[in-house]
Design a protein around this nucleic acid. Sequence first.
DNA 1: CTCTACCCATAGATAAACTATATATCTCTC
DNA 2: GAGAGATATATAGTTTATCTATGGGTAGAG
Lengths: 111, 111
Amino acid sequence: MAKKPDLLPGTLDMLILKTLTRAPLHGYGIALSIKRLSDDVLTVEEGSLYPALQRLLLQGWVKAEWRMTETNRRARFYTLTGAGRKQLGIELTQYEQMITAIGLVLKDAEA
Amino acid sequence: MAKKPDLLPGTLDMLILKTLTRAPLHGYGIALSIKRLSDDVLTVEEGSLYPALQRLLLQGWVKAEWRMTETNRRARFYTLTGAGRKQLGIELTQYEQMITAIGLVLKDAEA
DNA sequence: CTCTACCCATAGATAAACTATATATCTCTC
DNA sequence: GAGAGATATATAGTTTATCTATGGGTAGAG
């Protein structure tokens, strides 16, 4: 059974951090944002999202605050910290390096 | 501790299959090939490589044959099968789709 | 005869993602 | 006012991929 992953493993933290550079968001909003920005290609399951947010909180890369949404529901809003912004930079650099390297391997031409 | 992976998780099978489109190779040669083609960015550890090859064998995507290397050592040479070539196509498509989608999320511009 | 490069393979730990489940509220429709 | 559906958080348990660590063994160079 060819099961398809909902995202490239290892990229979720980066995607969340990047999403938060645009504006503070609650978890559900982050998931929606990533899904919509990616034209429905990337789906962040709840079972992946909330543990990831806990991770990011623990690392001090985001901070959380309970507020009310526009639709009048209680939700936990996450904001990127300075350390989080720095971490995002690191992860972006590593990611670029990785996909460049993968591109080299996938290229057909051999010297 | 939380060591970073030497490659993007989920891409190893694709990299191995692609490497085998060029020529049959033994495990050690596959690892070397990926490392060199990627300018030493991607390193395939043996503990990742051999289980991955077992996986590919089991799926019927490669077949193996004991032969002698140029340096006169016994080695197991892996050859891509028809099913493996098909699988590679699938994985390449999914990979492209993923990194395109990730690119959309990482872009700064918002409509 | 020792060292390095070559070669295979597995066990166990770790981490990240998934499925499934639980809870709860708001809004809209019938 | 009942129910559906979208909004919202969270955890337990499972799966899977990768790493670390270890174990074997051979060829050739010095």
